[in-house]
Design a binder for these strands. Structure first.
Lengths: 103, 103
DNA sequence: AGTATACATAGATGGTTGTCAATATGTTTT
DNA sequence: AAAACATATTGACAACCATCTATGTATACT
């Protein structure tokens, strides 16, 4: 997973409404109308958000008649998790660290 | 950590240059000039990115003379990780799930 | 066939973002 | 004091974003 892909996923998750959607999907797939009931947005806005989440690969959908069932793409999400968890954020920050500028 | 805070952190991480910065900081603190050498941006642009990363609490800095040493705020990052890991992305997607619309 | 429902698309709008050049501020060195 | 260095701020600009209204498309129900 490239850095650009991670950036795209982060961008998709950088909106509170889309985070709410992901939270809802984390308990299992939901149809659009069900998501719409919870969020304070119009239907076209929800449609836009679902497109953003789908385009970055985070969410996949399954059509059944007139209903679209959305769910988190677990493989894709696992790759993202892996990237985040790999950021170690070293605690032992040596205060006497040599700077690049000490020439 | 509120959903808005997570969204802000995601927004800060939604740029490939800033992700690169975070990757570099994950191996320990770095001064601005050191980050600048790696990235293909001007100094004001780097300064802007560091402000974005600082404003969301992801990065903290330590001033030593004319050098600013940046590092990942491990507590803040841990909170973010916790949120991400908590998203379970349920694999058992019951195909016969009852839709909200079955009235 | 006609109506209702679920979702997508198009177009508009106000706000935000990443980037740069120019300039300012503060620190170290000579 | 002057020059060099590290970083921040300002102002500008093109690109992008979240949202809405209006409309289109497709499916299901009566």
């Amino acid at each position: 997973m490239t850095r650009e892909e991670v950036a795209n996923i982060c961008k998709a998750m950088s909106d509170a409404n889309r985070l709410r959607i992901i939270e809802m999907l984390s308990s299992g797939e939901k149809c659009g109308c069900e998501l719409l009931e919870e969020l304070q947005v119009t239907q076209p806005t929800l449609s836009h958000h679902m497109k953003v989440l789908s385009d970055c690969g985070l969410v996949s959908s399954r059509i059944e008649g007139k209903w679209h069932h959305y769910s988190i793409s677990s493989e894709r999400f696992a790759d993202y998790k892996e990237y985040i968890v790999a950021i170690s954020c070293n605690k032992k920050q040596n205060k006497e660290v040599s700077c690049c500028c000490n020439k």
